[in-house]
Design a protein around this nucleic acid. Structure first.
Lengths: 199, 199
DNA sequence: GCCTCTTCGTACCGATCGGTTCGATCTCTT
DNA sequence: AAGAGATCGAACCGATCGGTACGAAGAGGC
């Protein structure tokens, strides 16, 4: 199903169109589940155009994943920021946002982690490592403001919970996974802070 | 690197040899990262032999994953069983075993989950769903014996932690991930049981 | 009107894919 | 010794892969 028919002749627009289709299709079908020809057909674009913009399939994958990482990171940061000053509220808001995502019918797990799993070497791994770093930054900030004894450790624990919840929601059905992960994250936060300050 | 040179002529043995090589190579290179010809070369077996035993590449993948699921399930159950009667000790032992696995140099995440992520439909998904069910069974048994208010919910939370820890250990470096996941699991168990009985 | 840049469509490349076939060879059973 | 099965190795199949090349056509700047 090609999207448009008139020639756009606006390179930036063409690039964005390819990127948007690739984001969707590579997520649905997997990195190796669709060929460059198929991507081009879906984007309504010729192979030459795709290769001029991205150089190779790997280049397209990298651009797609980087754009997605930026978007997801921004999204979660905003969810936390708009939840007020309480660290626990911010953490809850992050997991609320994630739970909403898990419940979407086309949810198939974290696209970036999936990509890294599919290609053990190459761009996907690098983008994924950086993506997890960004999550860790957000989480350890919340943990530190909550007065956790070891904010970095707690952040890593919550990060594992986050990525694991995505896997479970994808492979084992959604019902309640997001909410349960939220409760678990808050329980971990509570357990890490009731030692010193709260009593 | 073919393994043997003399013709074995023992079908069961041949099958096991293929299975063993496939378990290793499909895990290392990914489901689509190696072709049937490559598998045969590594196993020291002709394509005809492989196809007579497994029918198709998909059949080989399914057999490989099912065998692995059996092995991992048995391994974790035994780890729990040999840790004594205390549920917390059993849970700790499960995560100790996992932590040891995460630290292995060739660790690349949970092979079954990885396979399911690589092929959104087909045998891998079914085996993965069943695999998570088995984990859930073990975990909810422990949770119930520990007197958790909602053993099934707690089991799902710990399952997410477990799978997430594998992802983080794979993509973001091992150091401490296993141990931290262990502590988080125990913290969740504690938090779910200090309401009614322990106090 | 013209020139440049972008894009399309298609054909093409060599390589690899999963899977089949077949004759030769080997081992075991009887 | 003879037959039955299992296996090898290599040739072969059609399809698809990522990537390249080229002529025609359309749009924007001067």
């Amino acid at each position: 199903m090609p999207v448009d028919k008139g020639v756009t002749l606006d390179p930036a627009r063409t690039r964005e169109q390819i990127l948007q289709v690739a984001t969707e299709v590579l997520y649905e079908q997997g990195l190796d589940g669709v060929g460059v020809a198929g991507l081009c057909a879906r984007a309504g674009v010729s192979k030459e155009t795709l290769y001029r913009h991205f150089g190779s399939k790997e280049g397209l994958v990298r651009a797609t994943l980087e754009a997605r990482s930026d978007r997801v990171t921004r999204w979660l940061r905003e969810a936390a920021a708009s939840a007020g000053p309480e660290p626990a509220d911010q953490l809850g808001a992050v997991f609320d946002a994630l739970a909403g995502w898990y419940a979407e019918p086309k949810f198939r797990g974290c696209a970036i982690v999936n990509a890294a799993v599919q290609h053990h070497e190459g761009a996907a791994r690098q983008v994924a490592a950086r993506h997890l770093d960004r999550h860790l930054e957000l989480l350890s900030g919340i943990a530190a403001r909550a007065g956790a004894a070891a904010p970095d450790v707690l952040a890593r624990q919550i990060l594992a919970l986050m990525e694991g919840a995505a896997v479970v929601a994808d492979l084992h059905g959604v019902d309640g996974t997001g909410r349960q992960a939220r409760e678990a994250a808050l329980a971990l936060l509570r357990a890490s802070t009731t030692r010193a300050s709260d009593g």
